[in-house]
Design a protein around this nucleic acid. Structure first.
Length: 308
DNA sequence: CTCGATCCCTGGACGC
DNA sequence: TGCGTCCAGGGATCGA
């Protein structure tokens, strides 16, 4: 599930792979996740990929004006534009030789001027692709909060202080911070010893500062390790990330806390599965964790019994 | 403002 | 082996 580190990984890979390439043609599969599919077909051919940026969990492919645009070209094609890409849950993007068979669920293919195709595959189609000119793009981007890697400590504190929402809901809210998802929210909270259901307003400045630092350290380390691969994330070279090996909370229900050995628990916060240590991360009053499923942690491990 | 519910979608896990 | 069912989850949206 691509969050900030995974998207950053893909953006870097794409920068190496397709910067400066010109788009020759567009082929589309299913288009229900594309804002305006016809806009892609009409306005992408002839443009060069001039830059690739990450914006939260989005990638931004900066495109030149249409090459050879002249008096016969439409006004729109004589201006720069961008392709906004969100990988959703299962989106992948990579360049492949055009002759190579397309993976299942490949829904966008941009033929490039070097004989390769930039391909977008997305089994669940929770992603999003939009062709946007300058003004609509600006409008789109203003909806999002600060980049968690760029935000200063004081600004971070200000954003969560005075909020009555749960801290995890705030971390996940893209209008507060752009790029944090379920994995890195849980990992940061575990590192900072803060329960996900804690109210933002009730964090002490010290806790807030610890969380700010934990979040940045974890995101930076995750980028270095090319993100987390839980089920299907692959970078532009088809390689999984490595950060899942460093997970201390996410997906570790029933497993032993790396700090205190207590069995980690799961609960629902902000409508998402949330993993935490019930000992290190003190729950607010009234919070109920989900019961441990059978067969997870037990104090005295048993061997699985074959027969009766 | 904040919350939960609902929908989108498919693959994987699980039960029989 | 092969069904059916449930679930995950980012984000939009809507009602409480």
């Amino acid at each position: 599930m691509p969050e900030l580190p995974e998207v950053e990984t893909v953006a870097r890979g794409l920068r190496q792979a397709i910067l400066g390439r010109r788009i020759l043609s567009v082929a589309l599969g299913k288009t229900d996740f594309i804002d305006d599919p016809m806009a892609l077909e009409q306005h992408l051919p002839g443009r060069t990929v001039e830059g690739i940026e990450r914006y939260g969990k989005f990638m931004l492919l900066r495109l030149s004006a249409v090459a050879g645009a002249n008096g016969n070209t439409s006004e729109a094609d004589r201006k720069q534009a961008s392709l906004l890409v969100h990988l959703g849950m299962t989106g992948q993007m990579a360049a492949s030789p055009a002759a190579k068979p397309r993976e299942k669920h490949t829904h966008v293919c941009l033929l490039l001027d070097d004989g390769r195709e930039l391909r977008y595959t997305d089994a669940r189609r929770f992603g999003r692709i939009a062709y946007l000119t300058e003004v609509p793009l600006e409008k789109e981007l203003t909806r999002f909060g600060a980049d968690p890697l760029e935000i200063g400590k004081e600004e971070f504190l200000k954003k969560i202080h005075g909020r009555h929402a749960r801290i995890k809901a705030l971390l996940l809210d893209q209008r507060v911070l752009r790029g944090v998802g379920n994995i890195y929210a849980d990992e940061s909270l575990w590192r900072a010893k803060i329960h996900p259901a804690h109210l933002g307003a009730k964090l002490t400045p010290k806790q807030g500062g610890t969380l700010w630092r934990a979040l940045q350290e974890i995101l930076r380390k995750a980028i270095l390790l090319r993100g987390s691969s839980i089920s299907d994330f692959l970078d532009t070279e088809g390689r999984p990330g490595e950060y899942q090996r460093r997970h201390r909370a996410y997906g570790r229900e029933g497993k032993s806390c790396h700090r205190c050995k207590t069995a980690l628990r799961r609960g629902m916060v902000a409508g998402r599965s949330s993993y935490f240590c019930p000992n290190c991360q003190r729950a607010p009053r009234g919070f109920v964790a989900l019961p441990l499923p059978p067969g997870t942690a037990r104090l005295s491990p048993r061997k699985p019994s074959r027969a009766n």
